[in-house]
């Protein structure tokens, strides 16, 4: 199955193809499997079923059962197997259905994957990529909808990335596979169907820098993952109101790219942090603290956070929507910071 080729529209600019976030991820897998025979993919239903979110659809047929492996329903076991394979010289990609289930493998990730390089005195790297879906919006209720990225971003020894654009969906995997440390990659469930254009030649992207997705001068919206498109829409609305918002896509949640964040705050003097995680002890708290530590005297207003309401994600659509950051609530928060009159 060649989704990208099939999707080429007649009117596309030369060298540019229309694709989706999901297809770009699949292209990244195909590329990695072709380029490096140490790379293999395993996880629940990644083979015959094509992956819970259809990322690996067609890869079993193309690369065979040795390299696209369905595993038993035990996160602890197959993540652990991936760590062993990585330590033994392979370049495994392990897919966990969602971050919610990854907690069953937390011991393997935090106690083994994150520590081995350190505890072996640099002898035993774990070049493993663990991919997992995250976030809410598909009405799959609390046990399938949480955003627990910060649980991993807390831990030294692993890198945590969150591709939020088609370019990063296409480009982050290969770079992650080159990292000697385990990389946890979060794919927001609402991004898989994201459509857009990408250069035919698009390839690996870096994992070190946050990206300014939209330049602005009045306020910095700092976000990542599933909240990026919402923040971009909010910035669009704000522009209509005469407020110039800069949108920062963190891309990598650990280590954080302080420089890009602080540079933006130094320019706009105001910051809204948008995080689908909960606010208490969340990634938003960490970013706010760093801004306060290093850019306090650049601030012209308090730092504001737009996060998920502190409840388990509700099932009914209207409650789920109400619980999550939305373009409207992001724009409201930004407006309050910029247009205050005493």
């Amino acid at each position: 199955m060649t989704a990208i080729a099939a999707a080429v529209p007649p009117a596309a600019m030369p060298g540019v193809v229309k694709t989706t976030y999901r297809d770009a991820l699949r292209a990244a897998h195909r590329d990695a499997l072709r380029r490096d025979d140490r790379v293999f993919l395993m996880g629940e239903d990644v083979g015959r079923y094509g992956g819970c979110y259809a990322v690996s659809l067609g890869l079993l047929e193309e690369f065979g059962p040795e390299r696209v492996r369905d595993t038993p329903l035990s996160e602890l076991a197959f993540v652990g197997a991936g760590i062993g394979a990585a330590a033994a010289g392979m370049r495994p990609i392990v897919e966990v259905m969602t971050v919610n289930f990854s907690l069953l493998a937390l011991d393997q990730i935090v106690n083994s994957a994150a520590t081995l390089l350190h505890m072996s005195g640099g002898q035993c790297a774990v070049p493993l990529v663990i991919r997992m879906a995250t976030g809410a919006g598909r009405q799959v209720a609390a046990q399938h909808s949480h955003s627990l990225e910060v649980w991993y971003a807390h831990v030294p020894g692993i890198r945590v990335v969150a591709p939020a654009t088609i370019e990063d969906a296409r480009g982050m995997l290969w770079t992650a596979l080159q990292d000697p440390d385990p990389v946890v990659m979060f794919e927001h469930v609402m991004l898989y169907n994201l459509e857009g254009e990408i250069a035919e030649t698009a390839g690996a992207t870096d994992l070190d820098h946050a990206a300014v997705r939209r330049e602005g001068s009045d306020i910095s919206i700092v976000t990542y993952g599933g909240c990026l498109p919402k923040s971009m829409r909010a910035a669009e609305t704000l522009a209509a109101d005469g407020i110039s918002a800069e949108v920062i896509d963190l891309r990598t949640l650990r280590p954080l790219d302080d420089e890009t964040i602080l540079k933006s705050v130094a320019k706009t003097h105001r910051a809204v942090i948008v995080d689908e995680g909960w606010r208490s002890c969340g990634l938003s708290a960490e970013i706010a603290a760093r801004i306060a530590e290093s850019a306090l005297y650049e601030l012209d207003a308090p730092v504001v956070r737009v996060c998920t309401v502190e409840v388990p994600i509700p099932y009914p659509r209207h409650l789920e929507e109400a619980a999550l950051p939305q373009a409207a609530s992001i724009a409201d928060a930004a407006r309050r910071l910029v247009n205050h009159h005493g």
Binding site: D300, A301, P302, R336, L337, H340, H341, G342
Partner: peptide, 8 residues
């Protein structure tokens, strides 16, 4: 003119 009458 800021939040809570803060000078901006």
């Amino acid at each position: 003119s800021g939040i809570g009458g803060a000078i901006t």
